[in-house]
Every structure is written in structure tokens, then in C-alpha cells.
Design a protein around this nucleic acid. Structure first.
Lengths: 132, 132
DNA sequence: GTTTATGCAAATTCTTTGCAATACT
DNA sequence: AGTATTGCAAAGAATTTGCATAAAC
């Protein structure tokens, strides 16, 4: 069965075309995506409001994960385990990719602080842009 | 001489009241600030557009540093050395503070990737909220 | 006196919401 | 059939911009 369908079933969500289409994009692309990029990929087959509502729903359910980037445009990726991993945002092309396979730096929070999520973002020049 | 005045001189910027006032707030407060919070602090003595223009100018000049949080509201702090340090955002009160004094062991980026900035954001419950 | 910054208002961009129409179970 | 989702349009929030006025050098 298709991955996207499986995800909707796992989370007990109504299976609609919009949700399947949006999940398809995320399972195909490894980079983080914004609402606008999804809208472009779907070529108008799905309304902007629906995309926003779907992104919010998926984030709430834990299917997607919102990247802490320095911009006002929200970007999302499929949520992966382990939760704590590095993201790399290219200052030239703007792509945000997950750097899996890189061990995270270790740190200790001060007394009294409790960690719930960690967002590690490295900004710089990605391999593709460097070689271009 | 006042710190704010020194900063403007160091960066060769025209010394205006708005810039001094905004810098004063940053030197007094340790938490990251948004345009809205600065506007409130200034009680209308400075226009919204001016605050935005000033924040952008200071960021461009390297006086301020934009925090990579996951929200649509931009927050800034005075730029400190070392550039790579942890920020902690409280999920209850929303405050973002710099966790200086926490050492970040090294990590290695994959071949071909060049680092220009690192943004490490831990989200959770801050000490003040935990104790309240 | 010239250059640069500010204030105001309007425009842009990103995101959310109300509501009737449609799709899903 | 009944509930949940979508599309449309309008509203909202954050940020930027044009232009005349005011402040800084």
C-alpha cells in the first residue's frame, strides 16, 4: 500500500485527496517544504487554505515537524526519529535538508531547565551550490 | 560614554534617537526581542516602520542577530561572540534566552558543506516557569 | 546645505477563519 | 445520512515600501 495512505490510517485521519497529495510530496522530497512550495507542486489542485490546515493538522498529530529557521516562512519535514538532528539551510538556494548520520553535539542544560524539543540549524553553503 | 552610542560610532552609523533607544533596550534586556516588544517598550515614541528598518540595518551590520525560532515573529538579540551558542525558548512564557557558558562540542558537516552560522534552539520549560 | 532617517499610510506577504458546498465513512 | 473536509473570499498579523517631512552631519 502507498506510504501516504498508511500514514493517514495509522493516525486515524480521514483519507482525502488533498492529504494524500501533500503527504506524497513530503515522502518524495527530502528537503523541508513551505506551504508555497507545496502549492506550486500541486499546480492549483488544492486550495491554499486547505494546505495550511493540513500542515497544521499533520504537525499537531506529529506526522510533520516544523523547522526552526530564521525566516518568517514556515517549513516542514516528515517527522523522523531520532527527534534531535541537524538541519542545514543553504544561504544561496534556500534549501533546508536533514543531516542525518551526523552525531549531535552534546550539551548540558543549566539546572531547572527542561528540554522538550531541540532544533539545530546550520546555515551556510550546501554541496550543490558550492560545486555549481 | 553610553554603550549604545559607542556601538553606533563603532559601526559608523548616524546617531539618531530611535537607534539609541532601540539599542538601549537590547543592552538592558537579555532576552530576545521582537519588533512588537520593542514598540511596546518605546510606548509609541518611535514608528513601527522605523523599528523594522532599524532591526534590519542592525542585523545587516552585525550588531544584532536574528534567532532561528520556529515562529513567524522575528526575534533578535545583540550579537555575541562566540557566534555558536545555544538559545532556550520557553514553551510556556515564550521567552528566548541565550545559554552562554554552555560549551558546544564539535560536529562535522558532510563533505562539501560550508558552515556560515549555527543556530541551536532548545525548547522546553524555563527555570522561572518550572518554579512557578 | 546636503545627506540620511523618520513618520505616515498604503501595499505585500504569510496565515487563519467563516461559511456554504462537497467528499468521505 | 451524517460528519468531516474543502474552496472561496475576507480577515488578520507581520513586515516592507513610497514619499514628503524632519533630523543629523
Amino acid at each position: 500500500m502507498k506510504t501516504s495512505l498508511k500514514i493517514l490510517e495509522k493516525y486515524n485521519l480521514v483519507k482525502t485527496q488533498a492529504r494524500l497529495d501533500i503527504l506524497d510530496i513530503f515522502t518524495e522530497k527530502s528537503a523541508a517544504l513551505s506551504e508555497g512550495e507545496i502549492e506550486d507542486s500541486l499546480c492549483g489542485s488544492c486550495d491554499r487554505a486547505t494546505i495550511y490546515r493540513t500542515l497544521n493538522l499533520f504537525t499537531l498529530k506529529g506526522i510533520l515537524h516544523e523547522i526552526a529557521n530564521g525566516s518568517t516562512i514556515r517549513k516542514y519535514t516528515l517527522k523522523k526519529k531520532p527527534e534531535r538532528h541537524l538541519h542545514f539551510e543553504c544561504n544561496l538556494c534556500g534549501e533546508i535538508v536533514c543531516l542525518t548520520g551526523i552525531s549531535l553535539p552534546d550539551y548540558r542544560l543549566p539546572e531547572g531547565f527542561t528540554e522538550q524539543e531541540a532544533h539545530f540549524l546550520i546555515k551556510g553553503i550546501c554541496k550543490a551550490c558550492y560545486e555549481a
